[in-house]
Design a protein around this nucleic acid. Structure first.
Length: 213
DNA sequence: CACCAGGCAAGTA
DNA sequence: TACTTGCATGGT
């Protein structure tokens, strides 16, 4: 299957990317919310601000004033909205687990995914990032780079929806947390470097051998 | 100066 | 159901 070949090609090119860049599972969740429609570089600054105040902790964010929280995460944009989204996420975590993320293990993957999708500020991609990178569940994360790469290589139509793309991978790729983790990371790193709006961005793309962009 | 960044929710028809 | 728009800041 082509997906495996794409994975192998990119994996040989980039090596192990060791995602998600975070010290703890909860930090992954915070980053997943902050990175929405924002560059990771900006998120790192916000995360550092939160760390300096010791706020990378569900209970601390739960009790934090939303205005001062918004102020700390200002570098990563949409700060008022993301402040509320972080509050919603930690409220969910506290009621479901009391702040102990390992207690999410009692839920099946489909049940937990549906629960996450009910939380304000957690949509399909954020939910799947949390499931895969914070909770080690075998799901594929679909993002805009994935869409671009797959559609440019003729694997999906340009207007394919989230679930359609995710199902393509779930049906044609190993259900391995480790490989799903690396696959999404590879697609993002490839997209960042080579999959801009125009074709000239694709010149040195490691996937050109599969038909170009 | 314009455009983009590892989306989501709310409003409109 | 299917579009469209607002959200904020920092980098290129």
């Amino acid at each position: 299957m082509r997906l495996i070949r794409i994975y192998n090609t990119l994996n040989a090119h980039f090596g192990d990317l060791k995602w998600w860049p975070a010290d703890t599972p909860f930090e992954v969740i915070v980053g997943a919310v902050l990175v929405q429609n924002t560059s990771w570089r900006s998120v790192e600054i916000s995360i550092r601000n939160l760390k300096e105040r010791g706020l990378i902790d569900p209970l601390k964010i739960y009790k934090a004033d939303k205005k001062s929280l918004a102020d700390l995460i200002r570098p990563s944009g949409f700060n008022k909205i993301k402040s509320l989204r972080l509050k919603a996420a930690v409220a969910f975590i506290m009621t479901e687990t009391g702040g102990v993320l390992s207690k999410f293990n009692k839920f099946s993957l489909p049940v937990l995914r549906k629960k996450l999708l009910t939380v304000h500020g957690i949509g399909p991609e954020t939910a799947d990032c949390i499931l895969l990178y914070a909770l080690n569940r075998p799901v594929f994360v679909v993002d805009n780079y994935t869409r671009r790469i797959f559609s440019r290589h003729g694997l999906i139509s340009e207007d394919a929806g989230y679930e359609t793309i995710q199902r393509l991978v779930h049906d044609n790729f190993p259900k391995s947390v480790k490989k799903l983790n690396q696959f999404h990371a590879l697609l993002v790193e490839t997209g960042k470097r080579y999959c801009g709006k125009t074709k000239k961005d694709c010149v040195n793309c490691p996937l050109l051998g599969f038909g170009g962009c």
